[in-house]
Amino acid sequence: MIKNKQTKLERHYATLGMMLIAPTVLVFCAVIVYPLVSAIYLSLFDIYTPTLQGEWVGLDNYRELLGKGEFWASLRTNLIWTVGTLSLQILFGIGMALVLHQNIWFRSLARSLILFPYFISTVVAVLVWRWLFNDLYGILNHLMMAAGLIDMPVDYLGSMPNAMISVILVGAWKYFPFVVIAVLARLQTIPDSLYEAARIDGAGPVARFFDITLPQLRDVLVVIIMLRAIWDFKEFDLIFLLTGGGPVTSTQTLPLLVYKEAFSLNNMGMAAAYAVAMMAVMLVFMILYIRKTGEKDA
């Protein structure tokens, strides 16, 4: 009797739970699942953007994509950008977190200043950096010339490899605060006793970093690296607004290629194929990350 009543209550709760999740599921299906499925479907068509008329071409888009140099070139550019900016973010982020973990003057002000680039709009970041990079009146060229580092103003965004280096650096500047905050939060939970013990054993600051801090940070670093790798890989705004993929196509990553194909070259079907191919590349990272978070939940 009691058991029966409980299942009735449980059933009632399950219904309530489903009612609460219903809006989420509806919106998810309408704006995420349906577009995702139709992106895959569209990649099998040849569609002209202005008229949106198209015909079925099957796997032709993929055949063309894999045979064309542009996809592979963009993938390569994408990997260079991701690895470059990610390593700088991690290195600089850990360094900065260690500094901010110390008791420096006006620590909370310093933290806010460091955090700010992460929260401002990419549009603002790009405008500011394009002004700093300005070849004639930019402060960067002026400072570097005054310091005797260069004799002639440098073209930061219009030539290679400068453009790639600039994009990587601005990316690192914009996104390293994420690493700082995440690492800082973890640093605060490392028990002091570990350091005490190491000090008694005669370990210097460097040995303490490699023997205590780094192993303690390992787990959080793995998560940060995966998450940032995914986010950097799909970055569009920053690169598009800084260089537009140029000079020519030397900083054109996959998201920029998708955009160009769809809205400049007007090949929606081909663009969808590029997007799906890009997602396939990312899927490896995404599954790794989801696995990792799943482990931690369990």
């Binding site: 704006v31 995702l36 139709s38 955009y259 769809a262 663009a271 990350y289």
Partner: peptide, 12 residues
């Protein structure tokens, strides 16, 4: 984790 460029074409 999904990139917006995948959704943007069908959404458009």
């Amino acid at each position: 984790l999904l990139p917006s460029v995948v959704l943007i074409i069908p959404l458009y």
